[in-house]
Computed example of a mutant assay.
Amino acid sequence: MTTAEDTRALWLRRYHPAGTDAVRLVCFPHAGGSASFYHPVSARFAPRAEVISLQYPGRQDRRKEPCVTDLGTLADLITEQLLALDERPTVFFGHSMGAALAFETAWRLEQRDAGPHTVLASGRRAPSTTRAEEVHLRDDDGIVAEMKRLNGTAAGVLGDEEILRMALPALRGDYRAIETYSCPPDRRVRCALTALTGRDDPLTTVAEAERWQEHTTGPFRLRVFDGGHFFLTQHLAAVQAEIGRALDPVPPATAS
């Protein structure tokens, strides 16, 4: 029988132990991404922070599960998993699709008076901006071409037919979720929000990233990096410094 604890272990991955008074950092992967993408972030901030990396259905050890192809539904499911945890001051970090998902999850948690201290939205234009995108409707070759354009997947994976075949269903499902996502224009969170973007990102202009300011009533900050969509791999230390900056003012948890 699957218990609630077993279900949480499927969704929430912890790679390093944290202290009882540690704050919490929740990391939301990009489209096609997995929890292990944030292993370096966990190594950097534990035990100062309890770093939780989300594992969406349809990838790696969850590849036999169907992908969740609606972003709102995925945010609902993640919200329920996070609400079941002990209360700790929390920061969210999400890249690309993960940025929109972090925002939607934060908004849902704030409706339950359990929102994060800060959301860091990386590599994603603000929800108030729209583009006509249909990558999820392409054939397999078309999705692979998009992956190469964004340079977000190691060349070895793109050249390994077996691994690629396993990854494509998650990619298609995630692209469907983010490309059909629609946010009410007046949706705002109360927490601080920091937008991170690559100057040459083909999916997000600096102006589109700046419009994240319209979606918070709290403090807003924009940081622009050289590079494209996956600027964070090129500037890992600087991006981790931004995460550290967000964690610094968060008070430690009260040890029970």
Score class of each variant (00 low, 15 high):
M1Y: 11
T2D: 10
E5Y: 06
T7N: 08
T7W: 06
W11A: 09
L12V: 00
L12K: 00
R13T: 03
A18G: 05
A22S: 14
L25A: 08
V26K: 06
A31Y: 02
A31D: 03
A49Q: 08
A49D: 08
I52P: 09
L54K: 00
P57C: 02
P57K: 01
G58K: 09
K64P: 02
V68W: 00
V68Y: 00
T73P: 00
T73M: 04
A75H: 05
D76Y: 00
I78T: 13
I78E: 01
T79R: 14
E80M: 05
Q81H: 03
L82P: 06
L82V: 11
D86L: 08
E87M: 08
E87I: 12
R88M: 11
P89Q: 02
T90D: 12
F93M: 08
F93W: 11
S96G: 13
M97E: 06
A100M: 13
F103E: 01
T105H: 01
T105G: 01
T105W: 01
E110N: 04
R112L: 06
D113N: 12
G115L: 08
H117V: 06
T118N: 07
V119K: 09
R124I: 03
A126S: 15
P127T: 04
S128A: 11
T129C: 15
T129M: 12
E133R: 15
L137W: 02
D140I: 06
G142F: 10
V144M: 12
E146K: 13
R149P: 13
R149L: 15
A155R: 12
A155C: 04
L158D: 04
E161G: 02
E161V: 11
E162K: 10
L164Q: 07
L171Y: 12
L171Q: 09
G173S: 04
D174I: 00
D174Y: 01
Y175M: 14
T180E: 13
S182Q: 14
V189W: 06
A195K: 12
G198S: 09
L203H: 10
L203M: 15
T204S: 12
V206E: 14
A207L: 08
E210N: 12
W212G: 07
G218E: 03
P219T: 14
F220Y: 15
F220L: 09
F225Y: 15
F231I: 12
A237V: 09
A237G: 07
A238T: 09
R245C: 12
L247I: 11
V250C: 02
P252K: 04
A255P: 06
